[in-house]
Amino acid sequence: MSLPFGSVPGYLPGSTSLVEQLDRPVLLILRDSRHILGVLRSFDQFCNVLIEQSKERRFCWTNENGKHPVYTDVEEGATVIKGDQIVIMGEVDNLEAESMGVGGKLKKVPLKEFNRIMERVDEGEEKKRGKCWDFDTDLNN
């Protein structure tokens, strides 16, 4: 059985089914909970992927002082991601948050402001916990 040139069958097993997402914007959620947005340019039989125009989207869900949860994008350029690190990958309309249904709930901030917010959150968490427990030193005593 042969297929006409350029046609893609409705079902392709394994990583070959990614051919339909080539040259389209995708969102990847990785095992370390990072969110990567970019354009899928290539893949192999192990689901290793090459993402162009990639950016890591970072979230801060804290609602301190009545502020809305915030996010920022860190530009990364071309990125190769190992297939065993990908938890889920899906196609998105475009790479902006407004198109992903979060525009009204999240506020985009510059990276410097995001880092300042995260520092305040980290300091607040340490104050809540009191003395921080250090696994290595506390077990040795």
Rank of each mutant, 00 (worst) to 15 (best):
S2L: 09
P4F: 11
F5P: 08
G6I: 00
G6D: 01
S7I: 00
V8H: 03
V8P: 04
V8S: 00
P9Y: 03
P9Q: 09
P9M: 01
G10A: 10
Y11N: 12
L12R: 07
P13N: 10
G14V: 01
G14D: 12
S15N: 13
T16Y: 02
S17P: 02
S17K: 11
S17R: 12
V19T: 14
Q21G: 00
L22Y: 00
L22I: 03
L22P: 03
D23I: 04
D23E: 03
D23V: 03
R24G: 06
P25K: 05
P25T: 07
V26K: 00
V26I: 07
V26N: 00
L27P: 05
L27T: 01
L27K: 14
L28F: 06
L28T: 05
L30E: 02
R31Y: 09
R31P: 06
D32R: 09
D32N: 13
S33F: 14
S33P: 04
S33I: 11
H35T: 09
I36K: 01
I36S: 03
L37M: 10
G38H: 05
V39C: 13
V39W: 15
D44N: 15
D44V: 06
Q45N: 14
Q45V: 14
Q45C: 10
N48W: 00
N48M: 02
V49E: 03
V49C: 01
I51L: 15
E52A: 15
E52L: 11
Q53L: 13
Q53M: 08
K55T: 02
E56H: 04
E56S: 00
E56V: 05
F59V: 11
F59T: 08
C60I: 01
W61D: 01
T62L: 13
E64A: 14
E64I: 08
N65M: 07
N65V: 10
G66Q: 09
G66E: 09
K67H: 10
K67S: 09
P69D: 02
P69T: 06
V70Q: 05
T72P: 02
V74T: 05
V74R: 02
V74A: 01
E75Y: 14
E75A: 13
G77V: 02
G77W: 02
V80P: 00
V80C: 11
K82Y: 15
D84W: 06
I86W: 12
I86D: 10
I88L: 15
I88P: 01
M89D: 05
G90A: 07
G90N: 05
N94H: 08
L95T: 12
L95G: 10
E96L: 11
E96P: 01
A97T: 02
E98F: 04
S99D: 14
G103H: 06
G104F: 04
K105A: 15
K107V: 13
K107D: 08
K108C: 05
P110F: 01
K112A: 04
E113A: 07
N115Q: 11
N115G: 06
R116H: 12
R116S: 10
M118Q: 11
M118C: 15
E119M: 00
V121L: 12
D122S: 13
E123Y: 12
E123H: 13
E125D: 04
E126F: 06
E126S: 11
E126P: 01
E126D: 10
K128Q: 12
R129H: 12
G130H: 07
K131W: 00
K131P: 00
C132Y: 12
W133M: 13
D136I: 09
D136M: 12
D136N: 14
D138Y: 05
N140L: 13
N140E: 14
N141V: 06
N141A: 08
